[in-house]
Nucleic acid binder design. Structure first.
Lengths: 358, 358
DNA sequence: CGGTTTCATGTAACCGATTACATCAGATGA
DNA sequence: TCATCTGATGTAATCGGTTACATGAAACCG
C-alpha cells in the first residue's frame, strides 16, 4: 500500500490522499435526479426506498465521496451520537493518574465505538466560571451530547452532581450515583472484601489489619464491610487500631502500614483496599526490614498492572475493567433508546488473583 | 451547597437542577427587542456592539439561560472547536495499554482544555469497512473536526497515514510524521540514549548490552543511535549479539534478557529502550538467580509509574509527558490559526532519573 | 370500473446559528 | 447646507441536514 515518501509524507498508490470537497445532500440529490428527502431516506430509513433508487444513490454517494454532515444532523435531530466523558474535575488530585481508571477508559472507549458512539472529553464551558456547578452541564447542552459517563475519584464535585441531577442520561463508574436519569456500575466490593478476608484466614492468619479508603468513599466502605464479615464469621476480632484509612494512592499506603507495623503485637497480614496502597505497604514492610509474605502477608484490590510486576507479585482482588466499559456502554445505550426508567445498577463480580504476597 | 439527598440524587439549595429548555438566538433576540444578528455579535464580536445593547443581551442571556448551540455554529462556520484523537488503530496490540501513552493523554487533555478545545476520541466511521484507509478521515470530515492528534504505537496504519496526508491539521506524538499540514512532537531520543550509555559507562561498566525497540520504530532507532555514540566515544565496543530487539512490552524484555544472559561472557549492564522492557529484563535477571544491580545493572527509558515502584527502583531516562501535551496543543492551535506552514517539530529534553537498578 | 390501499417519492418548513450587505441616524468637514 | 463618513443595527440568505405532509402511480378488491 505504502509506496514512497515525498516531503516526509507518505503517499498511497491511489495517489495523494486529500480531503474531498465534501458535497452536500442537495448536490448528491441533483446528480441522482431525486429529491433530498429521498437521499436522506437512503441513509436513515433505507427500507422505505426502492431497491433501485437506493443503489443509484449509494453508488453516486461513493463516487463523489459524499459524507453526511454530523453537525447538520445534530441540529435537525438533536442527537449527536456523542457521549460526554467527565473526568478530572478535581485538579488537586487528578483521578486520571490512577491506573485503574485509565484501564477503564480504554475499555469504555472500545465498547462505545462498537455502538457507533464517539467519546467527547468535556472541557468545562469557558463561558462559565471555574466554580460554576453548571460548567459541565453547559458544555453538554451546547454540544447536544446524548449522554454522559462519569469517572471521578469520588470528589463529589458539585459540577458532577449537577449533571447527575439533570435530565441528561448519566452512567457513573465506580460511584454510587442514581436518579431518574442516572445509573451506575460498580464491582462487587463487599464480595471482594469478603474474598480477601477469607483468603487471609485460610492462609492461617489470626491477626489481620486493613488499610481502607477514605471514610466517605462507598466502594471503600463496602470492601471494609465485606472484609469485616469474613472475619466475624471466622470469629476473628478486628481491633479499631487495625483499621487505618488511606486515600487509594501509594504514599497513604506506606504511611498506614508504618502505623500498623508499630502495633504490638503487629498484624501478620494486611488487606489494602487498593493495589497502589498495597504497593506502598509492601514498601514500608521492606523498609522495616521485614519480609513479604513471611513476616507480613499483603493482599490488594484492583489488580492494576504493577500488581503483577512487583516482587513477590501482589495477591489481589481483580475488578473486571472490560466489564466496566461494556456495562457502561450498554446501560447508556439503553437510556438513549428512551427507557422510562434507567437500567438497574450493574455489579460486576470480583475474583481472587493469587500471587506471591500471601 | 449540597443539602440533602432524595432518590439517591443530590440537590442544590437552588432546587432541582434540570436542563433548561435551551432557548434559541431568536428567542433571546425577541426578548431583547433586537435582531438575531446583534445577539450573535454580542457573543462573537462584542467590540462592534454598543455597550448598552451588549449588557442588555448578556443580562437577558443569563436570565433565560441561553446557550449557543454548537452544532448550529459548526454548521455555519465549519469550525467545531473539537480536536480529534486517533488511537488504538491496531487492535492486535492496543497502544493504549501502554502507561506512557496513557500519561500523555492526560497531559494532552488538560492542555487542550486550556485552549478551549474539546477532545473527541474518534471511532472509525461505521460507514467504512474495517480496512478502509479513510475510516478515520471520514469520521473527521463528518464531524468538522478542526484538527487531529495522533497517538499510536508506530503501527503505520494506512488509516493514520490517510489523515496525515489529508488537509486536516495533524500533530503526531512520538511519531515522525510530517507534511504540509502535519508536524510532530518527540523526545530527544538520541540524547536520552546517550545519557543512558554515558551513565552506565560512568558506573564502570565495560560490557554493555541493549534491548532496543522494533527495527523500524524511529524513537527506538534514535535511542539506539545515541547509546551507540556514547559507547563509541568511550571506546567501548558493542557486539551485534549484544543488541536484541523487543517490542516495548514486558514479555519481549524478558525474552531479550534471557537471550542476553546466555551470552558468555554475559554483559554487566543493559540499556532497555523502554521501561516495560526493563521491568521484564529485571524479572528475567532475578529468575536466573542474579541480582540487580550487582550482577547486572539495568537502565530504562520513559519513566512510567512502575519504574519507581519495583525494587530496587529503576534508573531510567524520563520523557516530559506534560511537555508532550502542551507542545501538541500549541502546535495544533498554531495550525488552526492558519499559519502557512506547520510549526517545526518539537523535541523535548530528556533527563536521567537515578534509582537503585544501576 | 371506481374506490381504497400501498408504495415511492417530492415539497417545503424547520433546526439555530453566521455574515454579507443594506439601512439609517448622527457626526464631520468643506 | 449638503455630501460623506462612521458606528450601530437590521434583513435575509446560507450552512446541510430531517421530516410532516402532499402527491401520484400502481395494486387490490368487490
Amino acid at each position: 500500500m505504502l509506496t514512497r515518501a515525498t516531503l516526509g509524507c507518505y503517499v498511497f498508490e491511489t495517489g495523494y490522499i486529500r480531503v474531498i470537497a465534501v458535497s452536500s445532500i442537495r448536490e448528491l440529490a441533483r446528480r441522482c435526479g431525486v429529491s433530498v428527502a429521498t437521499v436522506s431516506r437512503v441513509f436513515n430509513t433505507p427500507e422505505v426506498v426502492s431497491q433501485q433508487t437506493r443503489q443509484l444513490v449509494l453508488g453516486m454517494a461513493a463516487e463523489i465521496g459524499y459524507l453526511p454532515n454530523e453537525s447538520a444532523r445534530t441540529l435537525a435531530t438533536k442527537k449527536s451520537n456523542m457521549v460526554g466523558l467527565v473526568w478530572d474535575t478535581d485538579h488537586r488530585r487528578p483521578g486520571w493518574r490512577h491506573p485503574f481508571l485509565q484501564d477503564i477508559l480504554v475499555a469504555l472507549k472500545s465498547a462505545l465505538s462498537a455502538h457507533g458512539l464517539h467519546l467527547l472529553m468535556l472541557a468545562p464551558d469557558p463561558g462559565a466560571g471555574p466554580g460554576d456547578p453548571r460548567r459541565f452541564l453547559r458544555a453538554v447542552q451546547r454540544h447536544n451530547v446524548d449522554g454522559v459517563v462519569i469517572i471521578d475519584n469520588g470528589s463529589r464535585d458539585p459540577a458532577v452532581l449537577a449533571l447527575v441531577d439533570s435530565e441528561v442520561p448519566c452512567v457513573a463508574l465506580d460511584l454510587r450515583f442514581t436518579g431518574p436519569t442516572c445509573t451506575y456500575i460498580t464491582s462487587d466490593n463487599a464480595g471482594g472484601g469478603r474474598l480477601a478476608g477469607a483468603h487471609l484466614i485460610e492462609r492461617g492468619h489470626r491477626h489481620i489489619a486493613t488499610i481502607t479508603g477514605p471514610a466517605r468513599n462507598w466502594p471503600a466502605a463496602q470492601r471494609l464491610a465485606g472484609f469485616r464479615e469474613a472475619l466475624t464469621e471466622a470469629g476473628i476480632p478486628l481491633a479499631d487500631d487495625d483499621v487505618v484509612a488511606g486515600d487509594f494512592y501509594l504514599d497513604s499506603g506506606h504511611a498506614a502500614m508504618t502505623k500498623l507495623l508499630a502495633r504490638d503485637p503487629r498484624p501478620t497480614a494486611v488487606f489494602a483496599a487498593g493495589d497502589e496502597m498495597a504497593v506502598g505497604a509492601i514498601k514500608a514492610i521492606r523498609e522495616a526490614g521485614l519480609r513479604v509474605p513471611d513476616d507480613v502477608a499483603v493482599i490488594g484490590f484492583d489488580d492494576i498492572e504493577v500488581a503483577a510486576l512487583i516482587p513477590p507479585g501482589l495477591t489481589t482482588v481483580t475488578q473486571d475493567k472490560t466489564g466496566f466499559g461494556t456495562a457502561a456502554a450498554e446501560s447508556l445505550t439503553a437510556m438513549l433508546a428512551g427507557t422510562a426508567t434507567p437500567p438497574e445498577p450493574t455489579t460486576l463480580p470480583t475474583t481472587l488473583i493469587l500471587r506471591g504476597s500471601t
